[in-house]
Design a binder for these strands. Structure first.
Lengths: 251, 251
DNA sequence: CGGAGCTTTGACGGACCTCAATGCGTGTGG
DNA sequence: CCACACGCATTGAGGTCCGTCAAAGCTCCG
């Protein structure tokens, strides 16, 4: 396990590849989102100036750790980032999985420290945005400010989804449907994808025992809802899975 | 139960009392917070211009309803506001209780609609801030922008607190300690306070059965942790209660 | 005084966790 | 190239916390 924290140490490598940063940036989810919200090209140029491309990170590399001073948010460009906390008994608590196009670090603004750890689950590429700089730019670009407010507002709702009064089946269905939709929104297949996280991580995230995850997935397969082999999932009955998930996702 | 939505209809009453809005505003939690974060007096004046004082609302009055177009956030000045959703089976899901000094409506920025209902549990006074106006002002006042970012960031963390699989006792202890601290932060007593919400609401918020809430509170009393009569609580053993709550609150 | 609604109390059952053992896949070294 | 070992996943058996159901008590009203 690599113990190093990526953010504070990657300045050198980041500064090294600014030659092609503009071409890279056209694939950056954050920039794309800004564009789609009506930000003009010249504004986007200013955004590009403060972007730092981080990666590739290997599975197990940490993006930041709980308690680190807050300096930047980051958009996931490729791979999956897991955020988690360690409680006082040393047990891990998974807070979320972050796919390409999603932003991490927003919950660190409040008290200027990252309140959780963030670790790469596979090979991860990031766009790093210095928060002081992007906040300053936001005061000049209304659309950027608006985009940031929306990102933050969105995350408020997401956190409370998996309360324990839903059944194990419902939570698992909601988890899979959520993944499917988020991947589809980024252009990936909605019906075939890989679980980049272990069953243990999924169980932890859903507040269940790993054994329960195993049993529920197996039963889903027996009932023809999906096909699963190792970490490769194929959803066979999206409608029925979605119906189970509505109790959690409220759509 | 009063079915009216307060925000869209109170413009007349709000505009009527702008004569003394400045004196009122000195007690507004939001303004105070801005001041304490280093915003200067002239900036605060500009903030006062766009504040609208709403209230008093009676218990059962709605501040906004799920699906209403988003227009404003609001700081609770007095009383308690409950936010909740209705799932497709018609069951209520309590999202949170908002005490004086706390801001509601932040989760509506994302898709320009309030994603939940907000209802007064007792006599409530609010400060209403038009969001377009405060966002515009924020781009001119860096400290205001920073304050808004922090408010949003804070709510991300709060939402995920009760999502974990802690025991009924731990969640109840965390609920009480949370209330105690938030009230103390506003100058109220940390050891004696009123539960402005019903047991049913508490149970719903903690994702428990009302019967469980009843049993746990009763057991806490038998064990000398607190004294409770109806909705009046006196905490007798803050330390022990806090110890139970750490599993949830992580402090 | 009486009724409605919330709260409390008890008995019971079920969903999921814990514990334990086996199976499977991957990487490593002989 | 195969054997072995380690970690993760699976499967089964048993226990428990808490939700559900039912009934009675309490409070605040009219």
């Amino acid at each position: 396990m690599n113990q190093s924290v990526v953010f504070p140490r990657t300045d050198a490598r980041i500064l090294a590849d600014d030659g092609d940063s503009l071409s890279f940036c056209s694939t950056c989810a954050f920039s794309q989102a800004c564009l789609s919200e009506g930000m003009d090209k010249s504004a986007l140029m200013e955004l590009h100036v403060l972007v730092e491309h981080v990666g590739p990170l290997a599975a197990g590399d940490h993006v930041f750790r709980e308690g680190d001073p807050f300096s930047a948010i980051a958009a996931v460009r490729a791979g999956t980032v897991k955020t988690y906390q360690i409680d006082r008994d040393g047990r891990e608590q998974v807070l979320g999985f972050h796919l390409p196009g999603e932003v991490i670090g927003l919950n660190a603004i409040h008290d200027d420290r990252y309140p959780c750890n963030a670790v790469a689950l596979d090979t991860v590429m990031l766009c790093r945005f210095s928060f002081p700089k992007i906040a300053l730019l936001a005061s000049q670009l209304p659309n950027l400010q608006r985009h940031l407010f929306r990102l933050l507002s969105h995350d408020i709702g997401v956190a409370s989804l998996f309360a324990r009064d839903n059944s194990a089946d419902e939570r698992m269905a909601a988890f899979l449907i959520g993944l499917s939709r988020r991947l589809a929104a980024r252009g990936f297949s909605a019906k075939r994808f890989q679980l980049t996280m272990s069953r243990t991580d999924i169980a932890n995230y859903l507040r269940q025992a790993p054994e329960t995850v195993s049993r529920v997935l197996r039963r889903f397969e027996r009932e023809g809802l999906l096909h699963i082999k190792q970490r490769d999932v194929e959803i066979l009955d999206l409608a029925r899975l979605q119906a189970m998930a509505t109790a959690v996702l409220r759509d």
